[in-house]
């Protein structure tokens, strides 16, 4: 009887210890979760998609179909920027993109996202045209094909369409520095 009781007490102590350990674990996890960024952005993971898929899109002015794999051959690096005339950050980004078009090994390719032709041409006239090619994604499906989710969004790729850099949201000076490092090096 005595031994049995002792066994029960021991069992109770072990169980309590386990429960407390579990509670402490939960507390630590939740505490850490509090300071984590809750919004999801596909860049943090998904390292598997390293190549941009090839696609055809019409050109803005001429409406001729242009194939991505054809035009990326021209230079060592291509910067693909998804933009729209109705997108406010795209206006601020425009100057930085013009700045980048001076790099000889790099070409800028613009993808006009869900826009009206008139508005986008006006935009390029007013703010300047930093792009060598202006492609049009009228219904936004090609951008989804690229794994993008809004404007502005930018990819830096090489000749083989390997993604070297992916920028969600407007480009800043840090990104410019990175792009210059990659393209000059």
């Amino acid at each position: 009887m005595e031994a049995h009781l002792q066994f029960l007490v021991k069992k109770k102590i072990t169980l309590s210890f386990l429960i407390i350990a579990f509670l402490v674990f939960c507390f630590l996890i939740l505490n850490k979760a509090l300071n984590k960024d809750k919004t999801y952005s596909p860049t943090f993971q998904n390292q598997k998609v390293t190549y941009l898929p090839d696609f055809n899109l019409p050109e803005l002015f001429s409406s001729n179909e242009i194939q991505l794999s054809e035009i990326v051959k021209d230079r060592d690096f291509s910067l693909i920027n998804i933009w729209a005339s109705w997108c406010v950050p795209c206006r601020e980004e425009n100057d930085l993109l013009k700045n980048l078009s001076n790099i000889s090994s790099l070409q800028n390719i613009g993808i006009n996202y869900k826009d009206k032709k008139k508005n986008s041409i006006n935009f390029l006239n007013n703010y300047g045209n930093p792009f060598k090619y202006n492609l049009v994604d009228y219904n936004g499906t090609q951008s989804i094909n690229l794994g993008a989710y809004g404007v502005p969004e930018t990819f830096l790729i090489n000749k083989n369409r390997k993604i070297l850099l992916k920028i969600i949201g407007p480009i800043n000076n840090d990104h410019i520095r990175k792009i210059k490092e990659i393209t000059n090096g």
């Binding site: 996890i29 939740l30 850490k32 979760a33 943090f44």
Partner: peptide, 9 residues
């Protein structure tokens, strides 16, 4: 929440 903290997935 737990998965995100432990594996960043």
């Amino acid at each position: 929440i737990f998965l995100d903290v432990i594996t960043s997935e």
